[in-house]
Nucleic acid binder design. Sequence first.
DNA 1: GTTAGCACTCTCAACCTTTAAGTGCTAACG
DNA 2: CGTTAGCACTTAAAGGTTGAGAGTGCTAAC
Lengths: 352, 352
Amino acid sequence: MKMSDRKKKILQIVVDEYINTAVPVSSKSITEKHLTDVSSATVRNELASLEELGYLTQFHTSGGRVPSPQAYRFYIEELMERGNLSSQDLDYIERMFSSKSHDVEHLIKSVSEVISELTDYTSVAITPHAEAETIRSLSLLPCGDGTALLVIMTSERILRDSFISIPENMGEEELENASKMIGKIFAGKELGKVKEVEEEALSDFGQYRQVMREVIDALKLYTRPRDEDVVLTGAEKIFNHPEYEDVENVKNFLTVISSKDRLADIIEGENDEIQINVKIGSSGDSDVPDDCSVVTATYSAGGKNLGTYGVIGPIRMDYPKVITVLENVGKALEDLVNSKNKDRKDGNERKK
Amino acid sequence: MKMSDRKKKILQIVVDEYINTAVPVSSKSITEKHLTDVSSATVRNELASLEELGYLTQFHTSGGRVPSPQAYRFYIEELMERGNLSSQDLDYIERMFSSKSHDVEHLIKSVSEVISELTDYTSVAITPHAEAETIRSLSLLPCGDGTALLVIMTSERILRDSFISIPENMGEEELENASKMIGKIFAGKELGKVKEVEEEALSDFGQYRQVMREVIDALKLYTRPRDEDVVLTGAEKIFNHPEYEDVENVKNFLTVISSKDRLADIIEGENDEIQINVKIGSSGDSDVPDDCSVVTATYSAGGKNLGTYGVIGPIRMDYPKVITVLENVGKALEDLVNSKNKDRKDGNERKK
DNA sequence: GTTAGCACTCTCAACCTTTAAGTGCTAACG
DNA sequence: CGTTAGCACTTAAAGGTTGAGAGTGCTAAC
């Protein structure tokens, strides 16, 4: 059955209304507030039909209707009216982004905070996948006691570090030497491709084989995000939404967000091309809980991936608001990075 | 009024019973299970008296009695019977600690996990106060684009790093030079005392003044724990305790634990001397919520502070269990570090 | 296709009743 | 004088009843 325009209109009203009030919507309330030119009985017929199509459900006969996940998906695709942020909100974004130093590690926290604050939902953010990045330089710093600090710089300026152990009898000069040699091997390689050169690198490297081994193991670890790479902000915000007056739901939610690994899986989707990505309820694939929605956006600016950001909350989520915020934050971020790039270029020219 | 032995015995029974069952305890249940040689009426008299002394409260006349915070404090001081961990639990500790590389950053996560798992409460851990540590070395690594990475090694082998910006026109050799000079200034200084030498260091330092400024600012930041220094494990464990079937309580709890800053304040007490520290309910001082208890222990081994670890949960907490776990984990940790130190010493001797 | 009208269903809150638990008090006991 | 049995009293929790209110589905008429 093709959806008539009126059906669409009514569905839109139901979803809008339910998003705003969290109360099942009745035929009467529709004719009173929105569709004053038809009677409630007519609307009732349409509602029954929409229910048959799978867009609406009722908890019980006298309870009004509630949108199904399918309805939300349709709403986002076709019905939703985009809003604009208030100038207050825009100011807030500007203020939050203008102040601080902006390496990715700090940026990710500010952005997550802004998103949570503006949407009133819990925000999750994750640094870009490291796999695609190329290693720019790699150094080993002596720490004494048979350990060294491994510092890696990638093309995207992201830094990661970890300890590795080195032979007890390795002196500082020797370490420096090894550091330079190993650095040369990996410079320009993609992190994700370290595995492929593993054999070769090890066989070439009689002298510092053990150190090489450690470095490779560390590099391999970087393909998986560390706990610190996943940022969670505003967990307590869920209590602002009535579905979380039920402990059972809070329990579900808290269990999901308390594991950074799980969070990483949830917000790291197939977002290579998609700019904004909405998962509603148990879409089957990921381990998003049944009663949750996740909206994510992957930002990049100036050819640089800035990470994936998102919002997690009840299925009855204010999608227009959330999507508008995500878009505006994306724009602001782009401006920020571009203006910085420009500065940097100016600086470099001055340098010449 | 002096507490008779029988009063103490009864108070102990009440607390034990309430900790185990979460049900207000009645005079009848006491005489049935524990004090079979007196009648319930006698116990009733004692209970009334204990209530008058402030150790017990009742929600309503026919509801049995519940220990007050004061009772828990007394219980921990005088009444509690220490248990021992099962050999299973001891094995578990051993297994968890034996496997991995143990710089403090990783250690803190494993320890927190072990504590949460064994106690069945939410565990919080924080790295040692950096203020008292002395700087062992300090280096600046070039990152290009007018930024450098600051790497600091302290006496305790804890490493911390952050980006600072440097003049655009500063070459790599120059940076290396600055790094060495600045390093010399701070080597051997306590982190907490950076402020004191600030003026002096800056005035001495015409040439690299700007870089010095940045380094000092970064060093000053380190007196406050970073978010990454606070580890939270097993947040979802609170749902295993009946007090958190009430959303209001969960809300309180989640709000507290969702800010790492607040968590740091809570578990960082005046634990210079005290080995195990119990805060019950709103002790007035910190921002522990009214309905929560926090038990913390600060570990050190081989002269090295290994951080503060704790458990946060309902006032009706299984103190004997929690304290036993904290003690055993402390012992295990000490063994681990000592055996490592021994290895290291052996290694150094071999080196000579 | 739309509408008025009405019977039907269901929830929710208010109220009552009963039951069970546990106490406080009093008077008697050894 | 501490201990005890006995009993009246209080309260929460559970179950049942009722009435009001909300909303629907259906039918017959427009």
